[in-house]
Design a protein around this nucleic acid. Structure first.
Length: 443
DNA sequence: TTTTGAGTTGTTCGA
DNA sequence: GTCGAACAACTCAAA
């Protein structure tokens, strides 16, 4: 009889330290085979030089090295659908149980339900744990058990619950890592074996130093200043735990950074309770907006050729680095939806393709915020003025000059729309969709 | 159940 | 140049 093993399935938790699911697997009493599945259903949707696949691949190689050097273990890398991979694993190994951290996105929920059924038929348990957030789905809710759809009361309740929690747990795996399996690993694929080429885009290192967290509140709105933590991709792939990020934030006097992490959990639970918001407006009447969706204008926006310097700077930063400063994300999103009257779903899809820190819940939530259609959204008549935003947030134009070097020369395009006209057109279009009375003729 | 106060990130207009 | 109100009424959360 082959030795029985536990499987730990890495998904978006690519770290050894402070990892709940891995910690649970290692304490199961069996040897633990860590695996990762390059899910062909996901990969086939992605461009062949996708920066996130490179990031993921490199991170997995680093995990393999760390486990080899310290414990003679590794991470087994598989390619296929989860169903195919588990069929193979159950055939080849004596699997007693599969451990993973919970994933709340609609595709992941459906996938995990299927895997749970498949494993159950084979008599294998599938355990999932909360790791990605401090409070999940129904842990921060109103008195009557309904989810919050307004941020501020959610945030207050979150903090109240957090105080009751006392200490944040730290799932330290180091004492147990010797339980990792030491043989029978499949061959290590190259990136090209997976059908991908190396992206030139590098993920930035995150910075959770006290100075950075303290400075964040002051400088986070100035895109010309490198004042953000760059935590996004690391939270997305779990190369750092949210608990570690929060511990760093808790020492700071200012709660701004802390609040941003709470926004992430707010949108995570919104997506859980309202998964249809991936495709439909949270406020239904906003699906009546008659989007213009002009394809040439959409291309100009994507390329950073709108003739509005801060919008173009943001789009070019995104295209070149897989990152865009938060302040400029709001402006570019507002410009697409309101000045150009292009459906937020198209903008959301473009960000989803380009952002290294792409997180479905936050992307959809924030795009719907910009369009006015989402939870706690900007009112429809709040239309960012692209020039006023420069004066406020990039007064020395350092950010613009960094990303739009030809700004101010003949080579730079003319403004693709007149701000005042576009603004008025937007107000009319939204009013028509929302049934807002115009003029004084209301009876 | 009803009432009341409040609500991430803005802009424009007119006094 | 500065400041408050309007934008348009609405929905949510909590007392």
């Amino acid at each position: 009889m082959q030795e029985s093993i536990s499987v730990f399935w890495f998904r978006r938790d690519l770290r050894l330290d402070d990892n709940r699911g891995l910690w649970e697997a290692l304490r199961s009493g069996n040897r633990v085979l860590p695996i990762f599945i390059f899910d062909t259903q996901i990969l086939q949707e992605l461009p062949k030089d996708d920066a996130r696949v490179t990031f993921l691949y490199d991170r997995l190689q680093a995990l393999r090295v760390a486990l080899q050097e310290g414990y003679e273990g590794s991470v087994a890398l598989y390619q296929g659908t989860p169903e195919e991979v588990f069929t193979r694993l159950l055939r080849e190994r004596n699997v007693k149980a599969v451990y993973a951290n919970a994933d709340y996105e609609p595709y992941a929920r459906q996938r995990d339900t299927q895997v749970r059924d498949q494993l159950k038929k084979a008599g294998v348990a599938f355990y999932t744990y909360k790791d990605h957030v401090v409070f999940e789905k129904s842990e921060v809710v109103k008195e009557d058990g309904a989810p919050y759809v307004v941020y501020t009361p959610y945030m207050r309740k979150w903090k109240e619950n957090f105080r009751k929690l006392g200490e944040l747990p730290n799932y330290d795996t180091r004492p147990y890592l010797a339980a990792v399996d030491t043989e029978n690993y499949p061959e290590n694929p190259d990136l090209s074996d997976l059908g991908f080429t190396r992206s030139g885009i590098q993920a930035p290192h995150f910075d959770l130093s006290a100075a950075r967290i303290e400075g964040y509140a002051k400088t986070r709105d100035i895109p010309g200043i490198d004042g953000t933590s760059r935590l996004g991709p690391h939270l997305r792939f779990g190369t750092v735990s949210v608990r570690k990020a929060l511990r760093a934030a808790l020492h700071a006097k200012n709660e701004t950074f802390w609040n941003e992490l709470i926004w992430r959990e707010f949108f995570t639970q919104i997506l859980w309770h309202y998964p249809h918001t991936v495709h439909q407006a949270f406020k239904k009447q906003y699906d009546n907006v008659r989007w213009r969706n002009n394809p040439e204008e959409f291309e100009k926006w994507k390329a950073g050729q709108t003739g509005f310097a801060l919008v173009d700077a943001g789009m070019r930063q995104l295209n070149q680095t897989g990152y865009m400063h938060n302040r400029v994300r709001m402006l570019t999103a507002s410009f697409l939806c309101k000045h150009l009257l292009i459906d937020w779903r198209l903008g959301e899809a473009y960000f989803a393709e380009k952002l290294l820190d792409f997180e479905l819940a936050s992307n959809v939530g924030n795009w719907q915020w910009a369009a006015g259609s989402g939870v706690d959204a900007a009112p429809y008549f709040r239309i960012f003025n692209p020039m006023a935003q420069v004066a406020k947030f990039d007064p020395d134009e350092s950010y613009i000059r960094q990303w739009v070097p030809e700004y101010g020369t003949d080579a730079y395009p003319l403004a693709m729309v007149d701000h005042k006209e576009a603004r008025e057109r937007c107000l009319e279009t939204y009013k028509a969709a929302l049934g807002v009375a115009t003029g004084s003729s209301l009876q």
